[in-house]
Design a protein around this nucleic acid. Structure first.
Lengths: 366, 366
DNA sequence: TGGACTTACTGAAGCGCTTAAGTCACTGTG
DNA sequence: CACAGTGACTTAAGCGCTTCAGTAAGTCCA
């Protein structure tokens, strides 16, 4: 049996002493094999193995190199909620692939009360760079990032001077969604919005309230919707807007149910995410409303959910893989000391599936 | 405008010099406020602010304290795939909550070719403890963890001496699932299994192959199924088993389609996960098979998916929240220097919903 | 044969912080 | 008044590694 006495782990110095070389040589054996003879290197590695030395301590290495080798992702909510949005997994995966995996570790900072992670968590995070994943303008962690002087990559929001931003054409996408409904003849249209305000429960919102959302994406999408509706001669102040918070499916279904009950005259719903559209689909089914005959639904994002819905969802596609990949490239760029380029805005595209139809197709509205 | 010359960030020493105190005092101002007068502490903090010192460098602090303050999660696959399983988000969230968030950061190590993350990633990870999330017996990262001498918490698999393990009663759950079908009169039953073998595409497997899976959970669930079927007088060698790899929904649907076509006589499917059952549901619909009249389906895990399926899925429930929480508690325990307790095995429970019915209910089988 | 290179390694100065132990001036006490 | 006790700092020894500027011996070429 191996001796498992809890004695301290061997260090570079121990190996150096065992082989009878300097500490620098052992370090080189691991980091710059070309700096010593193959024979000596073999001896060093052999001694390391014999002593149970598992290679340079990552923390010490980080300190000596003045770089921690990690990138931290700041999330808007706890992990369970954050990952209930498939868009996050996809973006994160593309990001992780882009940053040359193995070179950088990925640290997750779950969100707390004001959206982002706690300031304290940011201050203590061992990371060379931070990523803001769809955070509110008000997230206090962003100032902490600034205070630490860390480079920042922003995915979607908020737009911040000095940060490298990648986002999508939210406004254009929203316009396309609304235009599609208008062209199908819809006039009584409702909006399902995500997180307009923090710390409030979901529910009906006035236009002014919704327009004051601390989430840039919400503001953009809403503006896109309302601009088109206004241009079509619809009184935008009469367009009902409901807010949904926290990505909780049960609550979203209940909220959509309430919305549909409150405004039975609606013929279409503009949903700021596919998840919301999914909840609306379920609520509509409960109410005996057929989609699209009785109610047309447009989503946003085109996550895998959209295609799986029954009926498949008309939605605004964004390229999540590209977004994640570009975010990764921006991270690498900032890490190499270069400046943030101008914000990247990826195109969006309306994908028409089966959840939308001309307004009077069914005409069986309560 | 602030001077943004790229000069080096101030350190503890700079603040100490500015205030005219020793470095230790500044350190105490941050870490042990009771060690200095409130007045001096205020002066220190004020000077820090003035100099743009954002608090102790986390890496240096880690080195000095000989602990990195992070916990690394080793995953079986890339992030996109790993998170397409809702069980991971839930478990991870419960884990993160349990380990006193803010005290420990969470590092994600995505899996590579042999399941777990690369050895190199493990060697470089700044973490005080590793978590094996449902890894194969063969994952090379596990030896790396051992080599580094890091404590290890295992969720589900593999069972490893010295590690703190939390899992569920996979076998009992599988038995309950199979018994349920047997009691409903089913005799022609197929098994949809997850990842029996690495590096092979999915497809039909012999019993021996499936029993040789490097995933303990697979072996347990399969054993649970087959034991009960055998006890019911069914020839287990004739029970068809299909393997699905990689959690890819499209492929899973296609695979289930193939399976159902290959063996048209089946009246029920035992699925090793709800995701697999979901794919089977879709495939069955494509084939015009009604659930449960023509085909009964039992899932495993009882993730949110199960309830959302049409029809709602009969499945084996496990308490993912408890599993994550217990894993977190185990992590804290190991971190405090205590030994790993005996493996925790959480109970499972069959939840009967609408995807199962007596075998001859429909009788409209091809 | 001697100067210019190259190869193979060493010395030592950090990287920025924590913390145990020590100092020193005061305070209260019998 | 001597002395233990306390509060408020300081000293200095690490934590374990990287890396730059040497140094010494060996190689090459004119």
């Amino acid at each position: 049996m191996v001796n498992v006495t809890r004695r301290r782990r061997p260090t570079l110095d121990d190996v150096a002493a065992a082989v009878g070389v300097s500490r620098a040589t052992v370090s080189n054996a691991y980091n710059r094999p070309d700096q010593l003879s193959a024979e000596l290197r073999a001896r060093v590695l052999e001694a390391a193995k014999r002593l149970g030395y598992a290679g340079p301590n990552p923390v010490a290495r980080s300190l000596a190199r003045s770089q921690s080798g990690a990138i931290a992702f700041m999330l808007d909510a706890n992990l369970s909620i954050a990952f209930s949005d498939p868009a996050l997994s996809i973006t994160l995966d593309a990001f992780a692939t882009a940053i040359a995996p193995g070179e950088h570790a990925l640290v997750l900072l779950p969100g707390g009360v004001d959206g982002g992670p706690k300031v304290e968590q940011v201050m203590r995070a061992q990371a060379d760079l931070m990523v803001s994943y769809s955070l509110s303008d008000k997230a206090s962690c962003l100032q902490a990032v600034r205070d630490r002087g860390l480079p920042l990559v922003v995915i979607d929001e908020p737009y911040l001077p000095g940060a490298a931003v990648v986002g999508i054409d939210d406004r254009g996408g929203a316009e396309a969604a609304a235009r599609h409904l208008v062209e199908l003849g819809h006039r009584r249209i409702g909006v399902l919005a995500q997180d307009c305000m923090y710390g409030f429960p979901g529910g009906r919102r006035s236009r002014v309230e919704a327009e004051g959302s601390p989430f840039r994406i919400n503001r953009e999408r809403l503006a896109g919707y309302l601009d088109v509706l206004a241009a079509a001669g619809i009184d935008v102040d009469s367009v009902p807007i409901w807010e949904f918070t926290g990505m909780d499916r049960e609550k979203a279904v209940a909220g959509a149910h309430t919305a549909l009950t409150e405004e039975p005259g609606l013929t279409a719903l503009l949903c700021m995410s596919d998840e919301l559209a999914s909840a609306a689909t379920t609520a509509a089914r409960h109410l005996g409303l057929r989609i699209p005959e009785d109610l047309s639904l447009v989503g946003f994002d085109d996550t895998p959910t959209a295609r799986l819905l029954e009926p498949p969802l008309t939605t605004v596609r964004q390229d999540l893989l590209a977004k994640g990949r570009i975010a990764g490239e921006l991270a690498l760029r900032l890490l190499s000391g270069r400046k943030a380029p101008k914000p990247t805005k990826l195109p969006t595209e309306l994908v028409v599936r089966s959840s939308t139809a001309p307004v009077n197709a069914g005409a069986k509205r309560r």
